Simulated assay, not measured.
Amino acid sequence: MITLSIQKCCNCSKPFSYKEIFCSIWGGYRAIECNYCKTKHFIDTSNKIVFGLFLFPFFFYKGSYRIVVIVLWISLISSMSPFFVKYKIDKK
């Protein structure tokens, strides 16, 4: 069984908020800083590619309700994305 859960901090295991992750994705994949331990988390590059691939195909849809289909698809994918996108601590 698949369970949807918001990612937790890799350092202190406190969960990020849905809003933090959602705004990070739509803000150009900016880093998220944990509110408790102040560790910065960066989105995994593979997640950027997957997210883009989910949005890309519907731009070629040629039906009569093209705009409606695209808006609904983007809304669905973006509302679900905080449950699937994974962040990591950058170890430079």
Rank of each mutant, 00 (worst) to 15 (best):
M1N: 14
I2Q: 12
I2Y: 12
T3D: 07
T3L: 08
T3E: 15
T3M: 10
T3H: 09
L4H: 13
S5K: 14
S5C: 05
I6C: 04
I6H: 00
Q7R: 02
K8L: 06
K8S: 15
K8A: 14
K8C: 12
C10M: 09
C10L: 14
N11I: 01
C12Y: 01
S13C: 00
K14V: 07
F16I: 05
F16R: 08
S17T: 15
S17P: 01
Y18A: 02
Y18N: 02
K19R: 15
K19A: 13
E20L: 07
I21M: 02
I21G: 05
I21A: 04
F22M: 03
F22V: 03
F22K: 15
C23R: 15
C23L: 13
S24M: 01
I25A: 04
I25T: 07
W26H: 12
G28I: 05
Y29W: 15
R30L: 02
A31P: 03
I32M: 11
I32S: 11
I32L: 12
I32A: 11
I32P: 01
E33H: 07
E33D: 10
C34V: 06
C34E: 06
N35Q: 13
N35C: 06
N35F: 03
C37S: 07
C37M: 11
T39G: 01
K40V: 00
K40S: 11
K40R: 13
H41L: 03
F42V: 15
F42R: 14
I43G: 05
D44E: 15
T45D: 14
N47G: 12
K48N: 11
I49M: 02
I49G: 02
I49P: 01
V50A: 13
V50R: 12
G52D: 10
L53Q: 10
F54G: 02
F54A: 04
L55V: 11
F56M: 08
P57V: 00
P57Y: 06
P57D: 02
F58T: 04
F58V: 03
F58K: 00
F59L: 11
F59Y: 14
F59W: 13
F60A: 11
Y61Q: 07
K62G: 00
K62M: 03
K62I: 06
S64P: 03
S64Q: 14
Y65N: 14
R66E: 09
I67T: 15
I67H: 12
I67Q: 15
V68M: 07
V68F: 10
V68C: 00
I70P: 02
V71S: 10
V71R: 11
V71F: 05
L72A: 13
L72S: 13
L72W: 05
L72T: 10
W73L: 02
W73P: 00
W73Q: 00
I74S: 10
S75P: 00
L76F: 14
I77N: 02
S78C: 04
S78H: 00
S78T: 12
S78Q: 04
P82N: 04
F83H: 02
F84P: 03
V85P: 09
V85A: 09
V85N: 09
K86P: 02
K86A: 03
Y87S: 09
I89W: 04
I89K: 10
I89Q: 09
D90M: 05
D90Y: 05
K91V: 07
K91A: 13
K92A: 10
K92H: 06
K92P: 08
K92I: 01
